[in-house]
């Protein structure tokens, strides 16, 4: 992914320079300048639960248009990192900026969602009693306020948009089926479809191929490549075959912090990574 690698590398350099220049939180105004042009900027994020550090001075930069895969052993802090990005968890210290302007540490889930952060959970959570169509209708980008929701009308334009996404996810024939009756893979695609229709600028996918058959996994990889053209993506995965298939820049998390970052091959051959996965 040559086109994606250059700006990311630049951002990483910037981050490195910044990290050397100042301790986290030392210069408050600084990060905004340094983070200009990046979609997601995390620096020095620390989260602890009763003494246990789930994240330890984690730093990560993702540029608009990137596809980034994140791997790491269990307990490396992947889910907590997503919680911080989406406003579910407040970090103890650290900077988290979206689009260089919005302080994610001050926002709750619904606010980050409305900024354009979409999240797919590890366990597929679709609204089971609602039909596939209604699930997408709920996710469809529109005003989220109470009164706006009460007055919402499904006009032809919106209908067409839902149909389009149904096609992208390959769920066109199942539009009227209650989501609870979908297969596991279908639920995953529906959820990805919901992220797409939400018009999220940054999509966080937590183990999108967990529990999928090989065929479904391949289909998902194609889907992600398709999406990548219009969205910025962060994919957390365990399945190395799938990560290799995506072939994107990869960040390895370990014990709440970034162990290394680079192309899939470079990361896989990194002795530190091998030690973390195989050693101990």
């Amino acid at each position: 992914m040559a086109e994606a690698e250059t700006p990311t590398a630049r951002a990483a350099d910037k981050l490195g320079a910044f990290a050397k220049a100042a301790k986290p939180g030392a210069a408050k105004g600084e990060p905004v300048k340094a983070a200009k042009g990046t979609l997601l900027y995390l620096d020095g994020i620390t989260v602890s639960f009763d003494g246990f550090k789930a994240l330890d001075t984690l730093s990560l930069v993702v540029e608009e248009g990137d596809l980034r895969t994140i791997i790491g052993p269990n307990g490396a802090g992947k889910t907590t990192m997503m919680d911080v990005i989406t406003g579910k968890t407040r970090p103890d210290v650290g900077t988290a900026l979206f689009d260089g302007r919005h302080d994610l540490t001050q926002l709750r889930e619904e606010a980050t969602a409305n900024l354009g952060v979409g999240r797919k959970f590890q366990k597929p959570t679709v609204f089971e009693p609602l039909s596939v169509f209604q699930n997408l209708e709920l996710a469809l980008a529109s005003e989220r306020g109470l009164l706006a929701t009460l007055r919402f009308r499904l006009d032809p334009g919106r209908r067409a948009r839902i149909d389009e996404i149904l096609d992208v996810c390959g769920l066109g024939d199942l539009r009227a089926t209650p989501a609870g009756q979908l297969s596991h893979g279908q639920k995953q695609w529906l959820e990805i479809g919901m992220l797409l229709i939400q018009d999220a600028r940054l999509l966080l996918l937590d183990e999108p191929v967990a529990g999928m058959t090989d065929e479904e996994t391949a289909k998902t990889a194609r889907l992600i490549h398709d999406i990548k053209r219009r969205h910025t993506l962060i994919v957390v995965e365990h399945d190395m075959a799938f990560v290799r298939e995506l072939g994107a820049r990869t960040t390895v998390l370990h014990q709440g912090t970034v162990l290394t970052e680079g192309s899939v091959d470079a990361v896989q051959n990194d002795p530190k990574v091998i030690e973390v996965y195989l050693g101990r």
């Binding site: 889930e109 969602a113 959970f121 679709v126 609204f127 009693p129 609602l130 209708e137 709920l138 939400q198």
Partner: peptide
């Protein structure tokens, strides 16, 4: 109304509704 759908969605998976951007508390 669509709010009714949001209500059912909250009943089924409240967290997911928040991540869609709906003010679940207020609803």
């Amino acid at each position: 109304s669509k709010l009714g759908q949001v209500l059912v969605a909250i009943r089924e998976a409240e967290d997911r509704v928040r991540f869609l951007g709906y003010p679940a508390d207020r609803v």
